[in-house]
Design a protein around this nucleic acid. Structure first.
Lengths: 233, 233
DNA sequence: CATCTATAATAGTAATACTATCACCCACAC
DNA sequence: GTGTGGGTGATAGTATTACTATTATAGATG
């Protein structure tokens, strides 16, 4: 019933659809705030329940455990990113320009446009930067993958990989390049904030385009149009 | 007293130097086996203590908590990688060739040479692939960084970044490129094993050079020699 | 022989990650 | 209106985790 975009996620991510009830929406909204504030390790269902004036048991009726909740939030984010990318590229004919737009959106962690969701996108973006890798860096990754819990991320990567192939049909690593761009966008942003000696990227740049976008753009286009490519044996 | 390489680590990583006693070395050796087997989340000091026929309290005398132990293991790995890189490049004059060797070593997760350490390097390599990011993706990252706990990683990145600058002194993102290569090497390897639709990299390639090396090499050299670079505004 | 140190053994605490039970409220159907 | 079922709150309880504290002992050192 909520206005604005509606995002459908794999139903194996949850026990009860949190988007359908007041309590469910409160869980989503407040968990984003709490994970952003405490970090995923310190975040617990008990603390969440206290924040929303509900109980631990009620939260467990929506999500099997906090890992599934993280998977849900991250999937939601990739869906939302996909939506934004489509919105900004649907009438752009030039593949290079589409890729440029994609990178600009990918690297944009301080969001202006809200597209009317009840979730705090800026907070969620920060969570994705810090916690998204933990969604798959587990012993359950193969099981989760078999259940399709990474489908949104994989689809999005594939979509962009097709743009890369459009630019250079003989480039042999389109998916690897795109997944590297995804990971690098988050990591370089994180490094700029916390381990600045690992990167020239600066997090705080107003006015001009962020140099994260510049770094990723050059990395991508140089790789795609690379002259250093000898045919694969 | 152990033969072979000796690796000195920041003393803030531990409470008592685990390299100096039998129990300490047992902790290191067995924790690598256990984390590799269970994953970092399921790994506990209690389980470790049982494996080495000691007690939880004894383990706590060496490491403040399991996060510090992870930091120790990861730092040890970067030190060891640094050692290998120096060993294989110390008499190589050509910067491009040195970078090539670096990437080959970085991407080599199935190790043959053991360089006589009592630690299981192949097991540790797998841990680094899956768990290394968790060493800094925490709320304590700034504090840990202030205590110098990421110094080994940062030094290694800087060293390689200098090689990049040697190849192209005007390349504006040497550290960002190198840290991206580090992260991509691990992530692409992980994807090849668990989320293969995210990459063209194949984990199982005997005989010919792994295509992970090829992907990273092209990515690096294309970026460094990139013609797509307009001067920074 | 005295001393010091590392470790083992044991115990205990607070928090975490759940699971189970029961009572209640509300919407809807008959 | 009565019943039925679903969603929730309240409460309790368990096993495990992440530690901390205490004491005893065995071995090395002076």
């Amino acid at each position: 019933m909520s206005a604005g975009i509606r995002i459908e996620l794999n139903h194996k991510l949850y026990l009860r659809d949190p988007d359908q009830t007041d309590l469910g929406r409160a869980i989503l909204k407040e968990s984003i705030r709490l994970i952003d504030e405490l970090g995923f390790e310190q975040f617990t269902f008990k603390k969440l329940a206290q924040c929303i004036h509900s109980t631990e048991a009620s939260v467990y009726r929506y999500f099997e455990n906090k890992h599934k909740l993280l998977l849900y939030l991250v999937s939601w984010y990739w869906n939302w990113l996909d939506y934004r990318i489509c919105y900004h590229t649907h009438n752009v004919a030039d593949a290079a320009e589409r890729l440029r737009i994609f990178i600009r959106i990918l690297a944009q962690y301080q969001i202006k446009e809200q597209l009317s969701s009840y979730l705090d996108i800026e907070s969620l973006s920060r969570i994705v930067v810090v916690e998204a890798s933990k969604a798959y860096l587990t012993k359950e990754v193969d099981n989760d993958n078999n259940n399709g819990l990474f489908q949104d991320y994989k689809s999005l990567c594939h979509k962009i990989a097709m743009v890369v192939l459009e630019l250079n049909p003989s480039y042999p690593y389109p998916h690897a390049l795109v997944s590297t761009l995804f990971e690098a966008a988050r990591k370089q942003w994180f490094f700029s904030q916390h381990l600045p000696s690992l990167t020239e990227v600066k997090g705080t740049q107003q006015g001009q385009e962020s140099n994260l976008v510049q770094f990723l753009t050059h990395l991508a286009f140089d790789a795609i149009k690379g002259t250093n490519f000898s045919p694969v044996s």
